[in-house]
Design a protein around this nucleic acid. Structure first.
Length: 176
DNA sequence: AATTTCCGCAACCGCATAAAT
DNA sequence: CATTTATGCGGTTGCGGAAAT
């Protein structure tokens, strides 16, 4: 049998999706759409729960999905938004075309959380100095935009995120 | 070269909310 | 309105490959 294959107590397959399952699911949804996730696997010829199918589609099979290789800009968007709204992964995902909430959550937990934590002793001005100049405008605009959309805050209450760059000098972060 | 530990990622689970009956 | 069923979300797990020992 294939590695990682396993069934739940209803005999439905669990674990990693095979190429064949992907093809069946993709082919079905591209032709008929997803009108009912519970019934869909039967019609698509996939022995999975509807929930599993939905997840697979949303995270991986949907058109135009990117995978891996987050750009500095994407990381900054995640950090900025997370700083502002917390673990609202699906909301954050709406700002990153081609990225699923799941992937963003993974990115945060595996990489960005630690990076931000390591820099939490930086003051706001130190944070601003730590930003690469060409990214400051992008960053500030994004944060302003987000603050406006989400809850109409006064500009001086905007919380600026803390972002580090591997290539930047450490001189600005040696004391607090 | 063999074994263990680490880590990224895909997928699962439980719960909350929405929609249907 | 109450109950059931479907969907969406976020926390968490565990597999498998990479790195370390």
């Amino acid at each position: 049998m294939e590695k990682g294959s396993c069934c739940d107590n209803n005999g439905l397959k669990k674990g990693v999706w095979t190429k064949d399952e992907d093809n069946k699911l993709r082919a079905y949804i591209q032709r008929y759409g997803h009108w009912n996730w519970n019934l869909l696997p039967k019609f698509a010829g996939v022995s999975r729960s509807g929930k599993s199918c939905r997840l697979r589609w949303m995270n991986y099979l949907r058109p135009n999905m990117k995978h891996g290789n987050f750009t500095e800009e994407e990381d900054n968007v995640i950090i900025s938004l997370h700083n502002k709204i917390g673990n609202k992964w699906s909301t954050i995902a709406t700002r990153l075309p081609g990225r699923s909430d799941n992937e963003i959550k993974n990115r945060w937990n595996a990489h960005l959380k630690k990076r931000v934590k390591d820099n939490q002793t930086l003051s706001r001005s130190e944070h601003i100095r730590a930003l690469k100049p060409d990214l400051i405008n992008l960053e500030v605009n994004l944060v302003k935009e987000t603050n406006l959309e989400l809850q109409d805050q006064e500009e001086d209450q905007i919380i600026y995120p803390i972002v580090s760059f591997e290539s930047s000098s450490s001189s600005s972060r040696s004391f607090k």
